[in-house]
Design a protein around this nucleic acid. Sequence first.
DNA 1: AGCGTTGGGTACCAGCACTATCTACGGTAG
DNA 2: CTACCGTAGATAGTGCTGGTACCCAACGCT
Lengths: 211, 211
Amino acid sequence: MRISELVERTGVPLATVKYYLREGLLPPGRAVGAKLSLYGEEHVRRLALIRALRDTANLPLAGVRTVVAVIDEPSPDPVASLGRAVAALPPAVADDRRGPYPRAEAVAREIGEHIDPGSAAMAQLEDALAAAESVGLGISPERARCYARHVHAMAEFDAAHVPAGESGRAIEHVVLGTALYEPVIAAMRRLAHQDVARSRGAGGVRADAEG
Amino acid sequence: MRISELVERTGVPLATVKYYLREGLLPPGRAVGAKLSLYGEEHVRRLALIRALRDTANLPLAGVRTVVAVIDEPSPDPVASLGRAVAALPPAVADDRRGPYPRAEAVAREIGEHIDPGSAAMAQLEDALAAAESVGLGISPERARCYARHVHAMAEFDAAHVPAGESGRAIEHVVLGTALYEPVIAAMRRLAHQDVARSRGAGGVRADAEG
DNA sequence: AGCGTTGGGTACCAGCACTATCTACGGTAG
DNA sequence: CTACCGTAGATAGTGCTGGTACCCAACGCT
C-alpha cells in the first residue's frame, strides 16, 4: 500500500509517520522508482507497536528503538537480548547503578531464590520502596509476603502461556507482555480497590481476605 | 529552619524549591520580616511527597497539585475527594471520556460486582487492553480470571491495613498507596518472572540485565 | 501535459520542568 | 558604620522530547 493508505489505516498523521521513518523506528517501504514506496502489513503492525509502547507503556522513543531492535534482530543470545529489552522499559535506571539494595533484597527474598541481585528490576524495586518509605508508607514484611505470593502466581501463569516455538516469538511475547500488561494490572488493581471498598462500605461482607 | 537548611536537608535545589513555592505545590514559610521566612518539618515532608509522586509515580506537577490539594483540604465528601485524587494519577483520561468499555467490562466482571462502570480506572483498563490487543497480546478469559483473583487478594490486604481514624489520614494513605505501590508491584512482578524463568528449565541463566 | 502524490529535507513549535539571573533589601559581623 | 551574605520575589532563558509545517522537485497516472 502507499503511504497515504498506511496513514489512513493506522490513524497516525503523515508527518509523524515520516518522522518515525527518519528516526528509523519504522523500516522504509519497498521503493518502486525514486518517488514511490510501498508498505505492507508489517508496517501497520509496527506502527501499532510504536504507539502502544509510547502511549500505554510510557516508553520514550529511544526505548522504543531498543525494544524494536531486539524484536527485529534474530538474536544469537536470546537471554541477553531479553535483558537489554526489559532494562529499556521504564522506570529508567542509571547505567552505573550497582547494589546493594537493602530494601529490595528483603522483599526479593519473599519472591524467590532465583533472582539475579544485580538486575535492573532490583534497582527499580529499591527506588520504589525508598520513595514509598520517604512518605511514611514503608512496606511491612506481611505486605511484602502478600504481594510476593500474588505476583509470583501471576508470573507462573505468564510463564505457562508463553507461546512455544522459535525464540524470537517468545522474546517478543515476554517483552511486550512485561511492558503492556503492567498498566492492565495497575488498572485492575484500582478496580479491585473500588470493589473491596464498596462491598465493605455497602455492608456486603467479603471476609475471605488472604495474606 | 531557613530555606537554605530546607534545601540542604532535602537535597532539592534552591531554584526548584522556589519554583514549587511559586507554583503553590509547597506552602509558603512563616514570614518573619520582609526578607526571611521559616520552614518546618511539614515542608520537608511535602518536598519528599512531591519528589516521590513526580519521580516514582510519574505524576506531572499538575497532578501533584491535585493530589496535594485533596490531602490538604479537610474534605466534606471523602469519597468524592478520593475519586478526584485517584483520577489525577496517570495514565491520564480525557475529561469527556464515557463508556462503553467493552473489553474492560468483561475483565471487570471477573474482579467483582461493585465496580463503578464510569470510573477513570475503567477507561484506563480499556486503553491498556486495547493497546495489548493491537499488538496481538489480547487477554484471554483465563488470564483475566487469574489476574483478577490476585489483584483482588492484594486489594483486600490493602483495605485491611488502611489506618483507622479520621478520614483525612485514610484518604492520604489510599491515594499514596495507589500511586506508590504500583511501581513496587510492577518491579516485584519483573523479579517474579525472573525467578520463574530461572527455576524452570533455564537453570542458572540470567533472565534480566546483563551484568 | 497536467496534477496530485511522494520523498526528502529543513525549520519551527509546544509543553514541561526546571535553572539562571537580577534586583533589592535586611540582618549581622567586624 | 560599613561590608557582605542570605533571602524574597520576579523575569527570562534552557534542554529535552516529540512532533508539526512547509517547501521543493521528481514522479507517474490519465
